[in-house]
Design a binder for these strands. Sequence first.
DNA 1: TGCCAGGCCCTCTTTAGGGCCTT
Length: 206
Amino acid sequence: MLAPDDARTCIVFDFETTGLSPAQGDRSIEIGAVRLQGGVVVDRFQSLMHPGRRISSFIENYTGISNSMLADAEPCELVMQRFFDFAGDSNLVAHNATFDRRFLEAEYDRIGRQHTGGLACSMLAARRLCPNAPNHRLGTLVEYLALPNDGTFHRALADAEMTASLWLQLLDVLGERGPSNVSFAAMVGLCRTSKAALGKLVERLC
DNA sequence: TGCCAGGCCCTCTTTAGGGCCTT
C-alpha cells in the first residue's frame, strides 16, 4: 500500500542518540514520533532504548536522558521493530532529516528492515520558506514562528511534536501563496530546489 | 591524549572551502 501523497499526512519523528555518526558506532537512545492525518495528530510513539553501552556525560546533559533511565530500557532492536510496525511505509519528516535518516537506516539494517516511504526535511523547507529567520535550528524556528511548546527540547517526542507544528506551519505558509493541498512529493522537491529558482514567491514568505 | 560525520547551502564557487544543523 502506497503512502498517501499528502504533505499533511505523514509521520514526524526524531532520534536522540549517543553521538553524531552511526558509522562511528553511535546508537539511538530514544525515538519519538507523531502521526499526522490531514494535519491532525492522531497517534504518538515514544520509547527510550538501550544502546548496549553507557552514554557520555555530554549526552546525558544534552538530552536529559541518564544512564539510569536507560538501565531498564528495551534494546534498540525491539524498539525499532515496534517503530517499524508503527511507521510502515508512511512518508516521514524530520528536522535535518539526513541525520535522522542515517540512524533510521542503521537501526533498520540491524533488524533487516527498510523504509520504503518518502522522507522530507523540515530544516531545508524552512530555509526555503523562512529565509529571514535568525537561523534554522528547531528551537529558533519554534520561537521565531511562535509555535506551541512546553519548553522541553532535545527529547525525542517533544522535538517531534515541535517539528510537526513547524511542518504544518510551513505548509500553511506555502498554501497562502499556492494550492492549499500541497503534496508530499512537492515538499520533497521544494527541499531540493535551489534558492534562486524559487523566485519572488518564496522571497515574500515569512 | 586527542579527535572523531555527512549532506546541504552559499559564495570572494564550480578544478573549493567553510558554515549550518543534527546528537
